[in-house]
């Protein structure tokens, strides 16, 4: 098997195994009653996850805020009337990110397991999903010319 395909299969296997391990040990184990760790242990995990989560939420808020406050000189004459309700959607994005940030902060205050688990799951699964997708692309991409049917 060509080396490229091996990398592809490895990417798929590693990402699937890591996703399974993450979901099993991170969620299933906890659901069946494993105790929440001590306060220091909790915040050791909470701080890095919190930084990344808040960075994502702040980025979302910033996107919404930028769209809400765009002051474009004047729409180009060739642009037809914008009908996408972009400002309303931007407002909703700001609202949603603020609400999620507040919920997340409240969860941290309560030392909730889920306040860490949900964002960690989203971040981890997005990255593993990308590795998985690269693996799929590698093994399904033709890297040699098709065989000549006449020969």
């Amino acid at each position: 098997m060509p080396r490229a395909k091996i990398y592809g299969y490895l990417a798929i296997i590693v990402s699937l195994a890591a996703a399974f391990a993450f979901l099993y040990f991170g969620f299933y184990d906890t659901i069946i009653g494993r105790p929440i760790p001590s306060s220091a242990s909790y915040y050791a995990i909470a701080i890095p996850i919190g930084v990344v989560t808040l960075a994502v939420l702040v980025t979302g808020f910033w996107i919404g805020w930028t769209i809400l406050t765009i002051q474009v000189v004047k729409p180009m004459p060739e642009i037809v009337e914008k009908k996408d309700y972009a400002k309303a959607k931007a407002f909703l994005l700001c609202l949603a990110t603020l609400a999620l940030a507040a919920l997340f902060a409240y969860g941290l205050y309560l030392q909730s397991f889920w306040a860490l688990a949900v964002p960690a799951a989203v971040i981890t699964l997005v990255i593993l999903g990308m590795v998985f997708w690269v693996g799929i692309a590698i093994i399904t991409t033709r890297n040699t010319l098709p065989a000549d049917k006449n020969s």
Binding site: W62, I63, T66, I67, I70, V72, V73, K74, P75, M76, I79, V80, K82, K83, D84, Y85, A86, K89, A90
Partner: peptide, 19 residues
Amino acid sequence: READFTHDKSFWELMTTVL
């Protein structure tokens, strides 16, 4: 970015321009 904003029609286009 300002020039792109003048052409963006949808929320998605505006969002990807900001990003």
